[in-house]
Design a protein around this nucleic acid. Structure first.
Length: 970
DNA sequence: GCAAGGTC
């Protein structure tokens, strides 16, 4: 028999050179190989296991019965098998049957934990390096700071910032109510509450009040009395212990856990890290209660439970981690054996336990209703008859005796006070630690064993401040740094912002699915990396937002940086980058953008963004609008393909194109000798914006192909510019005193004005220079990968073709084997359709039987797991032409009017996809009440028109491919 | 110098 100390193994990147932060672009870590290894501080544990295993036939694993326990056991088993390959591994689960019928380890649970470990490592390393190096590069003040990112840390910080914003944005509103009081001769007093509560409209309230004033007396219209129960608390879990300790013992979560651990190690309480809030029926609770009967403080209550029939089995909560019971005292300990903090916490745990084993409190509630005119007012009294658990558990439960005078129905009285009162809505409070623990728990951020660590982490990292005195004592305020980071990530404008809990929660859902056998570790890792990669790439593309937020909130100046910090990365890290050249280079491209020397000029499509020349490794270069990475704002992203290495280098020149109508900088090209026709010099300065057709054609660049629709008018995410000012935040503490309405003057968040859809025809100047047929330039190699990709606006690129041929895929499947299809996009196809979350859509196929079966559409890649409702049909060239026809028809340009059904509505088009009878003519399905026609086999695939109404359609029917007149289907 | 999850 031997013991473990939690996880014996951990994950790390296998290539030691990746340890250095500047050894590679952080995004390389999305795909770098990861290995499991024995942690440095667990080497002795591993050695011990190996030694123990040598002489054993069987190994029984008795770790916690949760998925982490399964993985811990699995790692321990691996070590033992290595030491003794003949050893048989058994898993003890149910205590009572463990030895008689031992189980085996559950590989699904082990897989789920391995997925979590891998994702946490990659995400943490990538984003920590990204944001640390970014801010160190731009701000002198950040030189020695590590700005860590964790999938739990940041959502925790996000909660603090969210509440802070709510407090700052709060504008109190006046409310009005009617107050009724009655003081009897006996001096007894009844305070009645208006049934309407409060009104926001003074005039309305005054009208009611004036009407009531016509009546001199109030009449008692009802008196009810009923038995009320105050339920005893449920058994104690870790999160509940932390919350109660913070609120009533004034100990923070970190300290609470430390003290609890100390009590546990001394054997005074059960294991303090548990989600379980129900006792197993086999527990001998009475004997545990009995242990406290001699306690001077709580002994008499414990004795009552045992001797006076006061014991009752505890209520059940909803959670059971199957690993540990609820927290309870294991023995009685006198105060002199405990430190001050231990005394406090132990006392609480014992009281809670005894309360659980006691009975509900019983009271009688009387509600008296008084009426004036048509308005009703109630006064409530409470008499506690049996205190039961309340005797021992006196933590502010909001249940106290409330006496009111006796009234009889029909009795009248003259009000002592009847007034229209004005009050202000009260502002929310900053989060205290108990609030934060609660929100984290509900949002599945962290576990019972780690929630307090995450809170400590954001304090230690100086992302939040917890004042130790003053009115906000113990509450959380975001620091300038924490606020800036959240604001920066939020400004990137993704619903899946890195400061929000959604990504982590989604991961948790998938981990459960692995355990349930719904999916596999590989699929989940792939899916989550895809999501995080998308969010990461878009965040990197707008990293200036983070710098801007820091600049604004700190009041510090940005230095020019090293011109983007990617050049500092050691790109010789061959093995890793080779595996994913596209993603690494894509990111490098993004890192290069803000030095200003890659600027070509204003975007000809959206007119607001700046087009830059971005190198994309072996793929080529992009002419990319700065708005391109914003969801659904601008799609200008033109590929200059370079698959044959024709372009040795391309750099933006400082001279403008004189011929070009769109005022753009020229590009200095260096071409590979022999790769181009002799008419083009090897050093060539040219413009790619349409005026130089020859250059465009030789390089296979179709600048004219972008003729996409204008983007929808979008409203930017509101930016709390006034909220975030350095001064404002510094003043917050001093200004925010009790009873002082410091928020009155706070303005609401300023909203950026909506972006106009000023696309118009601004790009038409280049449309006319559409390139000639590719055949005219057959000196270009036929093997050129770029050929044919960019020829026309609605031609699919090879990646799309691959994607289209797939059936609708599950969320766990990538749309192509690389998982990086968006990186190859030429920017002119639908492959860049993004959903309302800002994610690149999955292309799916409609499965539902009907006219649209088989059609492809775009939808949110997150699907039913918290995805948005974005929907858009895929448009290939044919449907695009159809659309044009329809547009022309509707605008009356040389098209016949659309056929109308008998109701006069435009008939809708359908395709025969199912057959039902041998009839050659369609007829209604009998008894269905629907006029959906049924068809013969020969009609399969034929198109027809019918009434568009889904209920009570008129029966109009006409074959499209026939000259027959429409007829009515009954 | 990065994560989160165990545990003393």
């Amino acid at each position: 028999m031997t013991s473990l100390l939690g996880h014996v193994s951990n994950t790390k990147f296998s290539n030691p050179s990746l340890k250095s932060w500047k050894s590679c672009d952080p995004a390389v870590l999305f795909d770098a190989e990861i290995v499991s290894h024995v942690s440095d501080d667990m080497i002795q544990v591993a050695k011990n296991l190996a030694n123990e295993a040598r002489g054993c036939k069987y190994m029984y694993i008795w770790t916690d019965c949760d998925r982490e326990g399964e993985k811990i056991g699995s790692s321990a088993a691996d070590i033992c098998i290595e030491s003794n390959p003949r050893i048989t591994i058994k898993r003890a689960r149910e205590v009572h049957s463990a030895m008689q019928s031992p189980d085996t380890l559950d590989p699904k649970q082990v897989d789920a934990v391995e997925a979590r470990m891998e994702l946490d490592l990659r995400i943490g390393a990538i984003l920590t390096r990204f944001q640390t190096l970014l801010l160190q590069d731009r701000f002198d003040e950040m030189q020695n700071k590590v700005i860590s990112y964790g999938s739990c840390q940041f959502p925790t910080l996000g909660f603090v910032v969210d509440r802070y914003r709510k407090v700052k944005e709060f504008v109190p509103e006046e409310t009005y109510s009617l107050t009724l009081e009655h003081v009897l001769e006996s001096k007894e007093k009844a305070v009645f509450k208006w049934k309407r509560g409060k009104l926001y409209d003074l005039e309305a309230c005054f009208a009611i009040y004036a009407n009531c004033l016509e009546e001199k007396e109030a009449v008692i219209s009802n008196v009810t009395s009923s038995r009320k129960l105050k339920y005893k608390p449920i058994p104690l879990s870790t999160v509940e212990m932390e919350k109660m300790s913070i609120r009533y013992l004034k100990m923070n979560s970190q300290k609470t856990m430390k003290v609890a651990e100390s009590l546990y190690n001394k054997g005074f309480i059960s294991y303090p890290r548990t989600e379980t809030d129900m006792f197993d029926k086999t527990f001998n609770l009475k004997s545990l209660v009995e242990k406290h009967k001699d306690c001077p403080k709580r002994g008499s209550f414990a004795s009552k439970l045992i001797n006076n029939n006061g014991f009752e089995w505890p209520r059940n909560g909803k959670n059971n981690d199957k690993a540990h019971p609820p927290i309870h005292p294991t023995c009685f300990v006198s105060d002199d054996k405990l430190s001050q903090d231990e005394k406090l916490l132990y006392d609480f745990i014992v009281r809670r336990f005894l309360a659980c084993c006691s009975k509900n409190a019983i009271g009688y509630q009387t509600v008296v209703t008084a009426k004036i005119k048509d308005e009703f007012f109630t006064a409530t009294g409470l008499m506690i008859c049996e205190y039961n658990f309340l005797e021992i558990y006196k933590f502010n439960l909001g249940w106290s005796e409330q006496t009111i005078p006796m009234y009889n129905i029909g009795e009248t009285f003259v009000p002592s006070r009847f007034e229209l009162t004005k009050s202000l809505t009260s502002k929310p409070n900053l989060l205290d630690e108990a609030d934060l623990v609660d929100i984290m728990n509900k949002s599945q951020i962290g576990t019972d064993a780690t929630i307090h660590d995450h809170i400590k982490k954001i304090i230690d990292r100086e992302y939040v401040i917890q004042p130790s005195s003053g009115p906000q004592k113990g509450r959380f305020l975001p620091s300038n740094l924490g606020f800036s980071l959240v604001e920066g990530y939020d400004d990137v404008g993704l619903d899946l912002s890195l400061s929000k809990p959604y990504l982590r929660r989604e991961m948790e859902t998938h981990l459960k699915n692995i355990c349930d056998g719904v999916t596999t570790k590989a699929q989940v890792v792939k899916h989550c990396i895809k999501l995080y990669r998308q969010v990461y790439l878009q965040t990197v593309g707008q990293k200036n937002k983070i710098c801007e937020a820091v600049e604004k909130n700190f009041g510090i100046r940005r230095n020019s940086g090293s011109g983007g910090y990617s050049p500092d990365y050691n790109q010789s890290n061959g093995g890793y980058i080779e595996n994913d050249t596209s993603s690494a280079n894509e990111i490098n491209g993004m890192f290069q953008n803000d030095s200003g020397d890659d600027l070509l000029g204003k975007c000809p499509l959206c007119l607001t963004g700046e087009v830059r020349l971005i190198e994309h490794g072996k793929t080529g270069y992009y002419l990319q609008c700065s708005q391109f990475l914003k969801p659904r704002v601008c799609k200008f992203n033109i590929l200059v393909p370079n698959r044959n290495g024709t372009i040795v280098s391309a750099k933006v020149s400082f001279s403008k194109c004189q011929k070009c109508e769109v005022d753009k900088n020229m590009i200095n090209f260096k071409f590979l000798p022999g790769s181009l026709p002799p008419v083009i010099p090897l050093d060539y300065q040219g413009c790619l914006f349409g005026c130089n057709e020859m250059l465009n054609e030789i390089l296979n660049v179709d600048i004219t192909s972008y003729a996409g629709p204008p983007p929808p008018v979008t409203t930017s995410i509101p930016t709390p510019s006034n909220v975030s000012s350095f001064q404002g935040r510094a003043q917050f503490l001093s200004a925010n005193r009790p009873n002082e309405n410091s928020m009155n003057q706070t303005e609401r968040l300023s909203k950026k004005s909506p972006r106009g859809s000023e696309f118009g025809d601004s790009f038409s100047s280049t449309k006319k220079s559409r390139v000639k047929s590719a055949d005219d330039f057959n000196h270009q190699s036929k093997n050129s990968v770029g050929n044919g990709i960019n020829r026309r606006s609605h031609t699919m690129n090879p990646i799309q073709t691959k994607t289209r041929s797939k059936r609708a895929s599950s969320i766990y499947e990538n749309s192509n084997p690389t998982g990086n299809n968006y990186l190859y996009s030429n920017g002119m196809t639908n492959s860049l359709v993004k959903c309302d979350c800002g994610l690149i859509c999955d292309l799916k196929t409609a499965k539902k039987a009907g006219a649209n079966q088989g059609r492809q559409f775009y939808s949110c890649p997150r699907g039913s797991l918290g995805g948005c409702t974005f929907f858009e049909w895929y448009k290939d060239e044919n449907t695009f032409i159809e659309d044009l026809k329809e547009t022309n028809a509707s605008s009356g340009v040389g098209a016949s009017p659309k056929p109308k059904c008998f109701c006069g509505m435009v008939a809708t088009e359908h395709v025969v996809t199912e057959i039902a009878s041998n009839s050659s003519k369609p007829k209604a399905k009998s008894g269905s009440g629907s006029t959906k026609p049924s068809f013969s086999k020969s009609n399969l695939g034929r198109r027809y028109l019918k009434c568009p109404k889904s209920s009570k359609p008129c029966g109009y029917f006409r074959w499209i491919d026939s000259d027959d007149q429409a007829y009515e289907v009954k």
